[in-house]
Design a protein around this nucleic acid. Structure first.
Lengths: 145, 145
DNA sequence: GTTGAAAGACACCATCC
DNA sequence: GGATGGTGTCTTTCAAC
């Protein structure tokens, strides 16, 4: 699918606020509601918009600890690891990467002792390098161009 | 703020679909719409729900390359780096971390040559270790408990 | 926290440009 | 491709309980 300026602007606005109605979106972008509505249906059906979600403060929800892990698989147990990870809660992502490690994984925890437990659980099929997150630099929502 | 089961369920549902109306949410959780509405207002005002956004396929939007960077600041130029990063587009996050590196940053690019350019731009005030993302392991949306 | 009513906003469709 | 107008539905919000 070929995206034009309007599509990108719609994505931009929905990035900032996914609860906008078609009508509000139309007003913001000086179009009619049906025009916007049709674009969004397309964006959804092409899998460009994959979902509508919220951003939460993990700390306030009981997960004050965030870690990034470089994961190196032992003895080719890739599938064991993948299956294990895909059922773990509080995993923001798990990417296969180029470089010395095999995966990078980001996960939220209740406490540091839960981090320790996670590392222990993984240890039969992978070694890990752990990065504890202290804080975050604020970044822009997205796109614009 | 103390969160109870209902709050967590609301967060869970909104994680899966942030466009749910109060009424639909109420139906899903066997409550009345005003009850849900008030909870959400609280969750917002306490900063627990930080925003409503969409998930997009970055590849289909012109950013097929994703990289993670371990960033080590040179000569204490932290503020230079932070300021630079906070105005960069397509940065998913930039975390200050414990360990050998200072930051971990995730960013999307049009091409590998844009990655190269980014590394060059950062080089005056930081050294980088680059991890190119090949693919992702599917993970659960979130929370539940 | 629930219910019920009222007002308003909404999405959708058909039609037309 | 996009705009307009009408219809019926759904929404939120408020008051009373």
């Amino acid at each position: 699918m070929k995206l034009d300026d309007l599509d990108l602007k719609i994505i931009d606005e929905l990035m900032k606020n996914s609860r906008l109605s078609m009508r509000e979106l139309a007003r913001l972008l000086n179009r009619s509601a049906p025009a916007i509505s049709e674009r969004i249906k397309q964006l959804e059906s092409f899998g460009i918009i994959k979902g509508y979600t919220i951003q939460i403060d993990y700390g306030k929800v009981g997960y004050p600890v965030c870690c990034l892990f470089e994961v190196t698989i032992k003895g080719g147990q890739y599938d064991t690891f993948k299956k294990y990870v895909s059922n773990l809660p509080q995993v923001e992502f798990c990417h296969r990467i180029a470089g010395s490690a095999c995966f990078v994984l980001k996960r939220y925890f209740h406490s540091l002792s839960d981090v320790e437990q996670f590392i222990d659980e993984v240890s039969p099929f992978a070694t890990t390098v752990t990065h504890v997150v202290f804080s975050s630099v604020e970044t822009k929502p997205f796109i614009s161009l």
